[in-house]
Amino acid sequence: MKRFFHNKNFTVGFVLSLVVVIAAAVSLLWTPYDANRMNARDRLQGPSWQHPLGTDQYGRDTLSRVMTGSVNSIIVGLVTVAIGLTLGVGLGLISAYFGRLADEAIMRFADLLFGFPAVLTAILITSILGPSMVNAMLAIGIFYIPVFARLTRAVAMVVWEREFIAAARACGISELGITWRHVLPNILSPLLIQGTIQFAVAILAEAGLSYLGLGTQPPHASWGRMLNEAQTFMDTNPWMAIFPGLAIAWSVLGFNLLGDGLRDTLDPKMVRVR
């Protein structure tokens, strides 16, 4: 554990992400105000002792909404990475093991997905399925499948060539058992690194979709949604946009640095995969 904190990227990233996670955890139990309660008298305020981050056009407390929004962002990150990991790793393992036709089919499918501009297609998907947080997560998660599939294929192919695989076969371990006991543990660190980085990308993507009104729906708090609402009041009350914007930048930077730091410490040789 100590060697991780020798890495500057990891340490900074860890602290930034930890703040986000703590904020989210606290908001589940307590927020300064009810994040959705309107208060006409306190509309559009700047930072004050009562409302440290100000209020929005309905008089809702921005701090409470940013805190609640972090839960939203973390859920999106977790779910999208989970979609990408389960399907992507599965397809990547199949591709690496069987090779030939299965490999060709899966990798061409991955190329196909890569060929679409991700954000535009996510917009398309959410407009077809209807705007909601679940559909936004689906739209983002689908684009993670080829990312993890390619990475898994590349690293798994290398592991299958190692001699301890032949040793396990000689011990009589089944191919599935070898995959579970030898291949997966040995490809875990690149997956962890990529997962952390994709987590950050997902937060940004969800904010983008919500900003366009295709993600989280009102009255639920989402950083992208908050930016969208703040747009109208940019002249009179810029604070409304600054804090959710900072929250997005903070968490994306945090998880990105965390991923970079993990890569530096876990896998100095790792090739960058898209």
């Binding site: 032949a166 396990a168 030898h182």
Partner: peptide
Amino acid sequence: YSSLDPRM
């Protein structure tokens, strides 16, 4: 080096 699983 290659014949022992480094994770075990």
